[in-house]
Computed example of a mutant assay.
Amino acid sequence: MSQTTIDPAAFRQVLSSYPTGVCVVTALDASNRPAGMVVGSFTSVSLDPPLVGFFPDKKSSSWPLIEAAGHFCVNVMGSDQQDICRAVTARGPEKFVGVEYTISEHNLPVIANAIACIECRLYSVTEAGDHWFVLGEVLRLETTREDDPMLFHRGRYGGFAEII
């Protein structure tokens, strides 16, 4: 527990001023069904070894399925893929209804038309307050199209606009 008292609503409001990218982390569960979660906390961590990270909430029902798989795919969403994000945030068996994907050589769901995919082996999971800090060792990565990424800012999805 923290020694500092910060109002959770103020914390969220202030931190929502910082836009984040939007990714869908996927894996196959023990029954070979796709499991996935939308994350806005994805980041590159290390070049040697190649590591990436994200922070799932400890209350997530999807994270234990992905963790048990031992590997995952980070699908970087394009600004035109809000429907996929909304589908994957659904609970239960409806999560991947209407979401097109293929299964990679690493047995991971890769979402169709994601602007990039990063396939990883689970490297470590560290407790971080009410979240986990997950590190993945990159096994394969590729940019699949050169479109604008989806961004999340102040509770809304959006896209990138260049300043001219």
Rank of each mutant, 00 (worst) to 15 (best):
M1S: 14
S2F: 15
Q3D: 15
T5E: 15
V14N: 08
P19T: 07
P19M: 04
G21H: 02
C23R: 00
V24K: 05
A30N: 03
S31K: 13
N32E: 12
A35N: 02
A35D: 02
G40Q: 05
S41D: 09
F42M: 12
S44T: 11
S44E: 09
V45Q: 08
L47E: 13
V52L: 09
F54M: 08
F55S: 15
K59G: 15
K59R: 15
K59D: 14
L65D: 05
A69I: 07
F72V: 09
C73P: 01
V74N: 04
Q82I: 04
D83N: 07
I84S: 00
I84H: 04
V88A: 03
V88L: 01
P93E: 14
K95D: 00
K95W: 00
F96I: 03
V97D: 11
E100N: 09
E100A: 14
S104Q: 03
E105M: 09
N107F: 01
N107W: 02
V110Q: 02
I115H: 01
C120S: 07
R121V: 12
Y123N: 14
T126F: 12
T126Y: 12
E127R: 15
E127N: 15
D130V: 11
D130R: 15
H131F: 14
W132N: 13
F133R: 06
V134M: 12
E137K: 10
R140C: 08
T144A: 01
R145P: 07
D148I: 01
P149V: 00
M150C: 02
R154D: 09
G155M: 09
R156H: 12
Y157N: 03
G158N: 06
G159R: 08
F160T: 02
A161I: 13
A161M: 13
